[in-house]
């Protein structure tokens, strides 16, 4: 398959895909497993959409790719929908989310121990907003649920994978003192 062809296929699928498009999926549909070739088409599109005048951009997120409105366009999209689509998480929610993201899988008692206060209500909100999910049960007394982050979390935070979370090292240095 030629580069041109790959570019147009990717562009078309990006437009219609409601979820981050996985390259594997595209390769399967096209019966074309040339990973390097697809990567080339991808970087072409990435550059193509990265012009300053573009209102949309190509984002590598949740190990896939998708077309999104640029962050600077938020205000206009909001006015267009005439409502705020972005959920305003509380400070407590960000704390719990940080604890889960960096320590998953983790139970509610463990989360409470780190924060020094009960977090049940926040957990419920995060579950409702699909930022976290139950990943299993811990094999201790009471078999408490284990929680982890979701693909939706990666998408909402624009992360390709958990490895892209802000690094924790600089804080560890402090602990070593």
């Amino acid at each position: 398959m030629e580069l041109k062809e790959r570019i147009s296929i990717l562009e078309a699928l990006l437009l219609v895909s409601p979820k981050p498009l996985k390259i594997n999926q595209v390769m399967e549909i096209c019966q074309d497993g040339d990973q390097k070739g697809w990567e080339e088409a991808l970087s072409f599109l990435e550059k193509h959409f990265n012009e300053e005048h573009n209102g949309i951009m190509l984002q590598r997120v949740a190990t896939g790719i998708r077309l999104i409105t640029k962050p600077q366009m938020e205000e206009y999209v909001k006015s267009f929908y005439q409502k705020n689509l972005k959920h305003n998480f509380s400070r407590a929610a960000f704390e719990v989310l940080a604890i889960i993201a960096y320590n998953q899988p983790i139970t509610i008692p463990e989360i409470n121990a780190i924060r020094g206060i009960s977090s049940g209500g926040v957990i419920k909100t995060l579950l409702e907003k699909k930022m976290i999910k139950i990943t299993g049960r811990k094999n201790v007394v009471g078999k408490p649920f284990l929680f982890g982050t979701t693909e939706e979390f990666l998408i909402r935070f624009g992360l390709n994978s958990l490895k892209d979370l802000p690094k924790i090292e600089e804080f560890n240095a402090l602990e070593a003192e």
């Binding site: 219609v16 409601p18 998708r66 999104i68 689509l85 960000f94 940080a98 935070f157 992360l159 924790i168």
Partner: peptide, 28 residues
């Protein structure tokens, strides 16, 4: 100290969310 670390990370997550939480894709 552990809690302070989480507070910092929570702030960073919030910052990321401020940017990327306001981007939109095709709706399901």
């Amino acid at each position: 100290m552990e809690y302070e670390k989480i507070k910092k990370l929570a702030d960073e997550l919030k910052e990321i969310y401020t940017i990327w939480g306001g981007t939109y894709s095709r709706e399901e």
